[in-house]
Design a protein around this nucleic acid. Structure first.
Lengths: 224, 224, 224, 224
DNA sequence: TATGAATGAGATTTCATTCAT
DNA sequence: TATGAATGAAATCTCATTCAT
């Protein structure tokens, strides 16, 4: 930013300091910055400042602001996929497994606001980047398969209704969990409700399980 | 930019054409622009161009970009409150009234993406404007009172469970309805689901009613 | 500034509230504003705000920003001329009369910073307005005649040197008095001296008299 | 202004030509511009035009208009300090040394109107920048020490009065010298006097020496 | 591999002035 | 006599990107 006038600059001495580490630090800073300010609001300079590098270096590593943003999206989706893969549900009865999935999802959103904000930002951008870059289109999510297996077990037990699409269930869980984070400011202000990670998180989270489980249990075992 | 000295400039014809109409057109264009691009991304020039006016005129009317944005927020919240007030539910049985509320809310979001996007943008900005301007903090919403009355009737009939907070119910309805719009791009792409106003809207909307009603009906009439 | 949209505006009722009083208030506000911020820095809006009028009205009264500024200059020079005319010196011995002139001038500058600032601003503008408008060029100042008479009396008494130009004396008095006001910020900061109306004003003022009187007295009564 | 989307812009040839020279040219142009038009009146564009660079480059070098202005102030004060340091007075008798100081100061102001105008402008701004930036507050000036030594020698010889504060003497010299430059337009017009570098500069300058020296000599050698 | 230098586009805001009424 | 409406011209600052080294 500031210019230092060195009359005779020594162009020779350069200190190549672990490019991978640099890259990782830039990516972490970019996640925070894009999550915090959105794509347009994010500043390459701010990211450079957070990492003690320069705009030029970031462009050198990632090519452009947009490609950096893509790397960010890829990273946060990879992380949630990894986390979902860690869920062990097979030893749980179906209803308990559903509660486990809901709790995991709800808590993940509460604990990873950056992820939530990035997803929202991408939607506000109408999925522009996701559309243009195939690498982001193929990201599927383990959570749907897990849900599918649990639901099947519940149906086999006669505890869950029969006409259930796992994606619908995931949508409901995600919607209820995300709203707690995404709309915390307007909803909290308008209705005097603590939201996000504040207030009675456990209670709000349990309501999500209850909603899903009562719906799954309805008419189960009855001819339709 | 240019340094040439325009000593005496000839000001061209002015046509003062109905200031109210101008103001209204500017506000409408601002709603679209802010909803489409967010606060930072929105351009005063774009709004001026959409309305065949100038940046200076917009500042003359609204004072600054921020105040224009506030006028936008106030307007869209006023509109949804007005719409909610138009709901007539007293002649409907409780369960039907709930369905009516859900349908109304769901359809309002689908039909007013601008509103949804503005709410999301304000949340992404961490409610900065809502915090700073008292006029936006006092906006309450009729929907909660309506819900409260319907729930009370259902409880009186013994059809709804007893421990129900209307704000919780509104939160669930809003969450499920908003997600359909707010996350349509990422969710739609990742799980190959048509979202927003596309695909089987009625089916997704009905699932919301079902979720809420099965939850409301649970344990009703039983001692707790 | 703000726009109030009155659907059907009553163009009839106007309240003509003493145009002269308005004009005077505007002029007073303009003196303060131009003195405070300089010609370029002064804002027509600020003047309008100080007087609860509008930019348009000011232009209506004075024609333009420049003509308003001219009226300001004329006014403040008229005021100092009037004040100078009030000086009664004939009954004082020459040396005392000189002290009286110095004190008056010094105190006038200290008590009328607006005047001083306007004079400085006009000089910073290289006398542009004074040059262009004849009405400002003819402003002479009674102080020089007063000084001339006092000096003549002192010379007649043999107390003052012979080769004295009253304008030179006025220049010295004005320079020493103005500097106290005009350079108070830089000089005060750089040399830790209270200046302007602060600190030991009487002492600084007396040094001016002393300087002038010792100079006037030098070689007096001696053949040259 | 224009809304057209320049998707991929072809950046033209750049010629990085000696950053130090650029910086120096910008600073020189800034001195002239700020001195000529004051802080507010100065235009970054004008400075850019004078140096065949761009506003953006100036911001790149100096950060902002204000910081550029600070660099200007620092520079001109550094220059006068350097010039003052060059004065050699020890071989001169006290009275002659005083004349030398007066002549130097008077001529410096006449020959460096930019410096004088910048000092005046900063005072008109009420020392805002000097206050805010510590680097400008610590600027002291060698001239006061020089004066102090000369005065002490004169007192030791019994030629100068005893109760003398060198800062007071400098104030008088500066006031009389600056007035010749700062008020040249109004004073010259009102009293038909050539001022600044015009007219009988030597005569006006000598009057300053005379004033100071007669005052310094007064009561010298007498018990007080 | 890395970076300082440089740039052009774009964004908001201020402001004096003018016109129709 | 007075004013609301409207405007064009500046002015500053930010920013992503690129080039030469």
């Amino acid at each position: 930013m500031t210019l230092q006038v060195t009359s005779a600059r020594a162009a020779a001495m350069r200190k190549p300091k672990a490019p991978e580490a640099n890259r990782a630090r830039i990516l972490a800073a970019a996640i925070a910055e894009f999550a915090s300010r959105g794509y347009k609001g994010a500043s390459m300079d701010a990211i450079a400042a957070r990492t003690h590098t320069t705009r030029a270096l970031i462009n050198y590593y990632f090519g452009s602001k947009e490609r950096l943003y893509l790397a960010v999206l890829e990273r946060v989706y990879a992380e949630i996929r990894d986390a979902e893969r860690g869920l062990e549900l097979d030893h749980l009865p179906p209803a308990a497994a559903i509660r486990r999935i809901v709790d995991f999802t709800y808590d993940y959103y509460v604990g990873h606001e950056d992820f939530v904000r990035l997803v929202v930002a991408e939607n506000q951008a109408r999925g522009r980047h996701m559309k243009r870059f195939p690498s982001l289109r193929t990201l599927n999510r383990p959570i749907v398969d897990l849900l599918g297996r649990v639901i099947a077990r519940g149906q086999a037990d006669g505890d869950f209704r029969r006409d259930v699409d796992p994606i619908d269930v995931h949508m409901a869980i995600a919607a209820l969990g995300m709203f707690n984070v995404t709309n915390q400011y307007t909803f909290g202000t308008l209705f005097q409700r603590e939201m996000g990670g504040k207030g009675n998180v456990a209670r709000r989270r349990q309501m999500v399980s209850d909603l899903v489980l009562t719906w799954l249990a309805e008419s189960a075992g009855q001819p339709r």
